[in-house]
Nucleic acid binder design. Structure first.
Length: 493
RNA sequence: GGGCCGUUAGCUCAGCCUGGUAGAGCAUCUGCCUUUUAAGCAGAGGGUCGCUGGUUCGAGUCCAGCACGGCUCACCA
């Protein structure tokens, strides 16, 4: 615990004095009957005569947020989960003893208040306190009332203070909750079953990311925090769950940035008897549904740009995109050698062993991705970067896959699923080989997943949507840390 | 991991270029104040200037290293 500064000393002393005078400073027998937001919406517009006729038993609880005191009368704002309501406390209503108790309270203390509504000279709906109780003594000073808590590091480390004093932060997380609720309803309405599959997996699969490793003591075995739920959700397709989704955490042992947090929330869903093209339509519908319910419009402002989510969204193949944004002719990127030269020219370090398809995606990430502001489905992904996707019937070097980009960020990845168990085994073997070349630990082949495919998985398409990035889009947040309550930071000290 | 920037009172920030014994506002404390809302008036207290070392008669200020954070590049299906 830190050394106590003057203000913390003062608050502790007040706490001691309250105890000595018989006040219980941390009671739990107070039951508020009203919430600020309800009171404001119900009585914010009614006449003063009507207010006078209301009973005097409005009962609220919350945190004292700003005290304006004039000797024998004071105003303050009481902040609860709904927002803030002004409270008026005066000595001739609370009595000398009651008002003295109030005078000893501090900004940040949690109190219960009851009384009668009225409107002040400045027309603000206000609760005149007929009684007031301390419900929790706050022992630390709150940040400044005007600037709030601005230090980014303090905001993330002490999110509780951030939430207390920065109302726009509360709004972001309320909106996040609403978005997730809308998504759930969207899939439930379409007969998808929500499931939970293992977070701790013996063989990490479903994405090429580096996993976190942990250990199970009783079984003496290593487990991996999942990088994706994909292989388990497909087992469910095999089992007959033809429409399934999971909305939950993934963990990737990678760097931290404005768009990456090591644990992040992913929606994955699988629909039997559908193709990746069907999922494009479904994705457009999902985003428009969320946009209309959250913003009332398919247009989203993002920084100084307006993103229009009205379908249909642009569809562009990977190579077309590179031609367009790299201002390059097709033959300059059609084979590995010219592509290498082009990549180097654009400042990429080119690994001599890198396969054509992998390099193509690297070039795309560098020169195209940041420019895809309006929603764009990029299609025509190479086979070698898509070991779980179905081959394109017309061109077996490609797969039936899209990634969705909005605001220069990847938001979704989807494909028609590979359900040929023999092809899948070959792809796994190739992946394992190419991984041995690099310094990644060679990953074991998930034999149980292949066994499941051998029983037969219905033709299907599946998609993953990065929920944090989707929330960033709908809250105009530029950093993923602003939409995750407790982003990963190094420990203090 | 590289580059750039930041770290000064509980909070928000000046002060650093050009070295000379630490400043403001809010908050706190004392007094006055019964319709304020960044309430007001008068007064007071509060600092390991991120940490460690160096240069100097003297370092918040200059230099180096370290820690944490931000931006960015790299990494990242």
């Amino acid at each position: 615990m830190d050394d106590l500064n003057e203000q913390m000393e003062v608050r502790r002393k007040k706490l001691l004095q309250l105890r000595e005078s018989g006040v219980v400073p941390y009671p739990n027998d107070f039951r508020p009957k009203h919430v600020s937001s309800q009171i404001l919406s119900e009585f914010g517009a009614v006449s003063d005569d009507h207010l006078r006729a209301l009973p005097d038993d409005f009962t609220m609880a919350g945190r004292i947020m700003g005290i304006r005191s004039f000797g024998k009368a004071s105003f303050f704002h009481l902040q609860d989960r709904g927002g803030r309501l002004q409270v008026y406390a005066r000595q001739d209503r609370l009595g000398k003893e009651g008002y003295d108790l109030f005078k000893s309270l501090d900004v940040g203390d949690i109190v219960g208040v009851w009384g009668k509504l009225f409107r002040t000279k400045t027309k603000e709906l206000t609760l005149e306190a007929h009684g007031l109780r301390l419900l929790c003594k706050c022992l630390r000073p709150l940040p400044e009332k005007w600037h709030g808590l601005a230090d980014v590091e303090a905001r993330y480390r002490q999110r509780y203070v951030d939430l207390m004093v920065n109302s726009e932060v509360r709004e972001v997380f309320k909106r996040r909750s609403r978005i997730i609720r809308i998504i759930r309803r969207f899939f439930e309405d379409r007969d998808f079953l929500e499931v939970e599959t293992p977070m701790m997996q013996p063989i990490p699969g479903g994405a090429a990311a580096r996993p976190f490793i942990t250990h199970h003591n009783a079984l003496d075995m290593n487990l991996y925090l999942r990088v994706a739920p994909e292989l388990f959700l497909k087992r469910l397709l095999v089992g007959g769950v033809e429409r399934v989704f999971e909305l939950n955490r993934n963990f990737r042992n990678e760097g931290v940035s404005v768009r990456h947090n090591p644990e992040f929330t992913m929606l994955e869903f699988y629909q039997g008897y559908a193709t990746y093209e069907d999922l494009m339509t479904l994705t457009e519908e999902l985003f428009v549904t969320v946009a209309k319910e959250i913003l009332g419009s398919p247009k989203v402002s993002s920084g100084d740009q307006v993103i229009d989510l009205q379908p249909p969204w642009r569809r562009l193949s990977l190579t077309e995109a590179i031609e367009e944004y790299g201002k390059v002719k097709r033959e300059e990127v059609a084979t590995i050698e010219p592509l290498r030269a082009f990549a180097r020219k654009n400042g990429l370090q080119v690994d001599t062993e890198i396969p054509y398809g992998n390099l193509l995606v690297e070039v795309f990430d560098k020169i195209v991705e940041p420019n895809l502001i309006q929603p764009t489905f990029v299609i025509g992904y190479p086979l070698e970067v898509s070991p779980l996707a179905r081959k394109d019937d017309a061109n077996p070097a490609l797969v039936d896959r899209f990634e969705l980009f909005i605001g220069g960020r990847e938001l979704a990845n989807a494909f028609s699923e590979l359900n040929d168990p023999l092809d899948q085994r070959d792809r796994f073997l190739k992946q394992a080989q190419s991984r041995k070349i690099g310094d990644e630990p060679a990953s074991a082949i998930d034999e149980d997943f292949l066994r499941a495919l051998e029983y037969g998985m219905p033709p299907a398409a599946g998609e993953g949507i990065g929920i944090d990035r989707m929330v960033m889009l709908f809250t105009a947040s530029s950093s993923i840390r602003d939409v995750i309550l407790f982003p990963l930071l190094r420990p203090e000290h």
